[in-house]
Design a protein around this nucleic acid. Sequence first.
DNA 1: GATGAATGAGCGTTCATTCAT
DNA 2: GATGAATGAACGCTCATTCAT
Lengths: 190, 190, 190, 190
Amino acid sequence: MATSSSDKRNAILHATLELIAERGFRGTTMALIVQHSGASAGTIYHYFESKDAIIHELYRCIKRQFGVALMAGNPNQLPWPDHLIHIWLSAFRFYAAHPMETRFLEQYENSPYQINWYEHELDEHMAALVQMLHRDIERGLIINLPLEVLYELTLGVAVSLAKRQIAGMLTLDERTQTEVAEACLRAVKR
Amino acid sequence: MATSSSDKRNAILHATLELIAERGFRGTTMALIVQHSGASAGTIYHYFESKDAIIHELYRCIKRQFGVALMAGNPNQLPWPDHLIHIWLSAFRFYAAHPMETRFLEQYENSPYQINWYEHELDEHMAALVQMLHRDIERGLIINLPLEVLYELTLGVAVSLAKRQIAGMLTLDERTQTEVAEACLRAVKR
Amino acid sequence: MATSSSDKRNAILHATLELIAERGFRGTTMALIVQHSGASAGTIYHYFESKDAIIHELYRCIKRQFGVALMAGNPNQLPWPDHLIHIWLSAFRFYAAHPMETRFLEQYENSPYQINWYEHELDEHMAALVQMLHRDIERGLIINLPLEVLYELTLGVAVSLAKRQIAGMLTLDERTQTEVAEACLRAVKR
Amino acid sequence: MATSSSDKRNAILHATLELIAERGFRGTTMALIVQHSGASAGTIYHYFESKDAIIHELYRCIKRQFGVALMAGNPNQLPWPDHLIHIWLSAFRFYAAHPMETRFLEQYENSPYQINWYEHELDEHMAALVQMLHRDIERGLIINLPLEVLYELTLGVAVSLAKRQIAGMLTLDERTQTEVAEACLRAVKR
DNA sequence: GATGAATGAGCGTTCATTCAT
DNA sequence: GATGAATGAACGCTCATTCAT
């Protein structure tokens, strides 16, 4: 039975994600992707233009997943400031629950690959979040600083802490997660 | 005329820093280091065991510089909470003023290179900072959360914002820098 | 049209044999193997793990050929002492007729490459010969000295003389070959 | 106090001998000779034209030593066939007692280095031996075969067995040594 | 769609040799 | 005599990519 977007294609993406998470871009060779995906070199080049194309596609998929996770549970219907706490926890938990994806993202966003993509992707996936923050600034609920600053004071901290948890450098229980979310809120609250 | 610690050696380190900042580890080939440093391949291997050894040495140098910059101006003699604001600003300004070093660090700390080093280096260079934070926790001045969390809520934010400034995505004037430092302080203050 | 066991693979082995015979291991570079075999560097590494692997494989092939040549004509069915004369002549003629293989063997067996292999290979290819000698010792037909000694007094001499003939230092006609074989027999005969 | 032919020069030759015996020509780099000899690269090139020149010089020294050892005890004054037995034992014992020199010789004589040298050196160092064999052939005491053949039937066997003893593959006690010498004599005796 | 043998430019590294001091 | 920093051509090997089947 045929599949809508090919088992092989998914196997290639999945193998690449695993490999990059554990070996980095440099250590992820096409030969390794061939072995782990079960697809031949020729097949990989049938579905993707190049190794870089696989990586860019993977980035797009993961960003999409992350955007969905962030806005799950309709946070924009929660009262102030619960929606910010909710989003912070969603972000932290997404990263903590997806170590391979997180290790991929941190590598992608700190590499030559990313330079052409970054801003574009930020806008596309975070549009709803950005809108929410704008609204809260206008209402005088949070301090009037550039969006990038607000992002780093809140979700940026979530990413960094999730990375450390994945690396085994610390573990945040649910209670502490909420405490940190509240600390971030204090930082940006007027 | 003889030089202390060899001109060639410094030229190699400097060329490598520039190249990695603009092309990444992978894009920084020995051939490029040869061209930019003015040293031959043989000479490079006279001073360093391998390409990795150059990179590790560069990391050590930069971390040392950063540690010095952070503790410049004797922040531990300033009254609460000025010392934290002072350190935050020192960190941000160091990163913002050293774009190549910052781009290098972000790549190093997100790569296989770093895995063996990270915690050790953190302790060595940040000992004074860590001590300061411990003291403030004990005095009940800042919230009682793991040090890693406090780090990400404060200096972690400085790094991230400096990276964005280097990337040209925003510019923080001195006034705004202080506002962000104060926002970070609100996050960790009891 | 497909070939059994790949033309390229054989071309690589053959080119390597020729090159080592005339230039030694050190002088046989991968670039030269590429030129003489008609295979690209990548193809060579598709069939062999390393330059050393080519050399070890070549050794195995040649030893196999030699073992076959030695036992050709069913010498163990000949009466005493004709079977020893027969084997001696087979050995000498194999070496004399295969100068490249002989030059290869002499280099392989006097190099770090061989250290792990030598004894093992001796047993494997010479099993029948060893058995024959044992039998003749037990029957009191040849002197009771260690096998290695008996080997050097007989086939070892054949190798050395063949090497000299290949080097053009002397030429043994059929008559003289038999005389030398008989001299060797006198050495080991009780 | 000055030395007749420089300590450094001897240190270089000795270090090279040790290194080649245990690592071969390929594994003996100039850097290693620098370390083990205590002479700097510059000094080595003051005494020798090239790495090959060191090796050729070493060969000449060892051949000279060997020639001396072979003719020690004035074998040409011993009665037939004791002088041949005596020379055979001298040869075997020289090799067995000088493992580094023997390992060096076997590598030298199986390498591109040797091709230009071999015959010349044979004549020079073995002149006395050759003369002795000639005399014995004329007297009808030994078989009339080319000198090279007689060499391989006698001293050639001594070399090969000494190599095996050095490699730890067998050990010949004094009694057995004499038995083998006598076996070689039987091979060449009329 | 799928294969995998074949490619070759380019990689990090080595090492015999030189020469200013 | 002696040094050792400097050289650079050449080494063994890798790997993203292609294409005949």
